[in-house]
Each structure stands twice: as structure tokens, then as C-alpha cells.
Design a protein around this nucleic acid. Sequence first.
DNA 1: GCAACATCAAGAATGAATTCTCATTAACGA
DNA 2: TCGTTAATGAGAATTCATTCTTGATGTTGC
Lengths: 123, 123
Amino acid sequence: MARQTQQRAAILKALVAADRPLSPGEILAHAQRLSPRLGIATVYRNVRRLVLDGELVEVQLPGAPPRYEVARKGHHHHFHCRICDRVFEVEGCPGPLTGLAPDGFFVEAHEIVLYGLCRECAA
Amino acid sequence: MARQTQQRAAILKALVAADRPLSPGEILAHAQRLSPRLGIATVYRNVRRLVLDGELVEVQLPGAPPRYEVARKGHHHHFHCRICDRVFEVEGCPGPLTGLAPDGFFVEAHEIVLYGLCRECAA
DNA sequence: GCAACATCAAGAATGAATTCTCATTAACGA
DNA sequence: TCGTTAATGAGAATTCATTCTTGATGTTGC
């Protein structure tokens, strides 16, 4: 059976504390504050399992490696800062957008990504 | 100076004829109809130069390799068919979406991707 | 507490996309 | 047409994210 290890706890805590999607490298950096000897392979192993277990969801953004965020957050979108490369969550949504597709196309989902400067980089 | 080769012409014609963003592999397959001995390295070489020359633009979509489309098409978005994996252009746009970002964030651009079934795969 | 064994850390290995190498081909100015 | 040389084709090499391997470690059931 699965064991509750310090490393997995550190990985989950890092994602909960960040409250934004993190890449494997970011997860490593954040979680190492709690578990200093943590290695990147352990991040990948645990992230894979946490996604399978439904605790994390993968967030794919254009031209960027996969990021991961805690599951059950409801429908939302993302903001990608072009300076610091961090990704943030964005609350609203302009609607289902089914009207944009050409006739005969069937829209099942949509993704919106905003680009620009985050609060810190805009200051 | 740059030469006008059959291969480069075939690559551009393939992209113009397709009227949708193509991946390097798709460009190879389409352009080989016009230039059968075309190789993948030549596709990458020419695509890189055509992007630098401003004739093509790179289209990045979530979780997908880069695709390329002819430049100067105006603001538009994309539809990614989950069955055939082809990407199509979509005309409209719901607006600048600057209101979605949190306070203090500065929105410079946005990308919208629709997912579902294209006309052929929905039939 | 202790033994069994799931998990770990570190580095090697993998895989896929992209780029490089180099002998050959072909574009184009004279 | 011809010579120069940019561009090509094919396969090797590279890159980088991710996964595997190994011996060591730490968690859990008893």
C-alpha cells in the first residue's frame, strides 16, 4: 500500500501554499524548503501518482512544460507572466465560447491564457 | 544570398493551401506531394528562416509541438480536434479579456483554444 | 521495537524533437 | 553554359524533460 512520506507531503504542501500551477522544477525548489534532500525524480514519481489519484491536475500552457495544481478548483483560466514565467490562476470566464467555432464543429472545452505582467513584475 | 529553391516553395505552398497551422511533420507530409525527396531537416531549416523573415508565425498550443501558419492573418484563435489532432483557425474573439486578470496585473495578449470535434470527425 | 518492503536520492538511461555534419545537388550571376 | 557556393538529404548527434536502476533509507503493520 502507499506510504505517507515526508517527501510526498512536502510536494503537496508546496502546491497548496503556492496556490498556482507549478512546474516540476518549481515544485522541487519549493518543496526542498520542507525536505532539503528531495530529488527531481521523486518529484516526478509523486506528481505522476498524485495526478492518477486525482489530487493534482496537469495544466498545459502553450510553449511551456506541464505544470500541476491541486484538483477541485472549479473552472478557471491562467495568466502567464512573460517576465518571471510564473503562472497564476484567473477567476472569471467569458462563457462557453461555442459560437466561435465554424459550423459543423463541436466544442467540448476551451482554454484561455492571458499574457503580460504579473503584479510584482508590473510594479 | 538566399536562393529560391523548390523545397522552400513547396513548404510555403503547403502552408498556404492548408490554411491552418501545420506541425513540422505535417508540413513534411504535405510538401512532399510537391517535392517528394524533401527531408525533415530541410523543413526545420526553412521554417526557421521563414519565421525569421516574417513570412510564417509560430503557433504554440497547450501540450502540442509548435505549429506554423502564414503571417499577416489578423487576430484569430484556434480549434484543436481531439480526434484527428488537426488545428483549425477560428475567426471571432470575445474581446481583450483584460477584465479577467487580478488587480495589478497588466494584460498584453491572450490566447484562446477550443477543443472538440472538427467537422469531419463530428460526422 | 523490529522486520518487511515501499520509497528515496543520485546518476544513468531513455525518447522525442530538433539540429548538425558532410558529401551531393542545384540555383543563379556572369 | 559554367563555376561558385547556398541548399539539400540522410543519418548521426544533440538537447532536454522524463523515467529507470540501484543500493540505501524510512514507514508501517505486527
